[in-house]
Every structure is written in C-alpha cells, then in structure tokens.
C-alpha cells in the first residue's frame, strides 16, 4: 500500500498507508490528521482540504479539473504551484508514496 506523509505547518509529520481508491482527504480524516476540516466531505464544494504537494511529487498527480482549479482560487492560505484539494486526489496503484504539507489555515 502506498504511504502518504502529511506534514503540518509546524513541521511535525505523520506517515500513513492509504488504500487505493481513497482520497488523501479521507485518509487524513480516518487517521485523525488535523488541519483538514473538509467540511463538505469531499464534494469539491468548500475548499477546506487544501494541501501543498511536495515539488518532487507534483508531476505524478493527474491534472487539475476546472472545478478544482476554481476552488483553489479561493483557499484561505496562499495558493502555491503545489496547491491541490486533498479530496480530489485519489490513491491509485501508480501514484505511489507522496508527501504533502497542510497549510496553517483553511478558512
């Protein structure tokens, strides 16, 4: 199973195994990783599951949908090149291990 490391804004980190098919947001919730409120539960409707993908992992991810791109315009923390909504990134066999950083604010 692929491992995803969630780094908090303060530098602390947790690494968890993420089953294929799960989103990075769902895996974070089910493992009590703080900082991803994900109020809409993965509906791409609230922009509160923002994460920064590590530069080295960015090319592995599928492209942004228009919807995700639009929602990212509205995130609370600064939008950076690695910004994604963790509810829209599903683990696949091909994706492999990832590292993401959770921004300090989601609202």
């Amino acid at each position: 199973m692929s491992k995803v490391t969630y780094r908090q804004a303060d530098g602390s980190a947790n690494t968890i195994e993420v089953p294929v098919g799960w989103s990075l947001m769902e895996a974070a919730m089910q493992n009590s990783i703080e900082g991803i409120p994900a109020e809409c539960g993965g509906g791409c409707a609230c922009a509160t599951c923002h994460v920064y993908i590590d530069e080295g992992d960015m090319s592995k991810l599928p492209d942004l949908s228009d919807m995700e791109g639009d929602m990212l315009e509205c995130v609370a923390a600064e939008r950076l090149p690695g910004s994604r909504l963790s509810c829209q990134i599903r683990m696949t066999d091909e994706l492999g291990d990832l590292t993401v950083t959770i921004p300090s604010e989601q609202f």
């Binding site: 791409c44 409707a45 922009a47 919807m67 639009d70 929602m71 315009e73 509205c74």
Partner: peptide, 12 residues
C-alpha cells in the same frame, strides 16, 4: 452552477 470561484467570491 459549476461556478465555484464565483460562489466563493460571493461568500467573501
């Protein structure tokens, strides 16, 4: 409808 940036801007 399928216009999230507008939705978020209006909320703000």
């Amino acid at each position: 409808i399928n216009d999230p940036s507008c939705h978020m801007a209006v909320r703000k």
